[in-house]
Amino acid sequence: MSERRAILAVEDKLSEAVSIKILEDLGIGVSQSLGLRGKGYLQKKAQSLNQTAKGFPVFMLTD
């Protein structure tokens, strides 16, 4: 079975570490990390990431 992969979009390093752990437990590898520039950046990029998610799984964590 090929490895499942997802693009990660997070606010900061802490969210990144938590997300990687969650995905790891689900057997999903992270192929690309995005963000690390706060919540505003993710909000601004949400539309682009939705578009991306049509072709590739995206995991976004924000609070």
Partner: peptide, 17 residues
């Protein structure tokens, strides 16, 4: 690279991706 291509096509920049 598949993920990069999809992200760029969605409007993100090379610097971001």
């Amino acid at each position: 690279i598949d993920e990069v291509r999809v992200l760029l096509e969605s409007g993100l920049t090379v610097g971001e991706v």
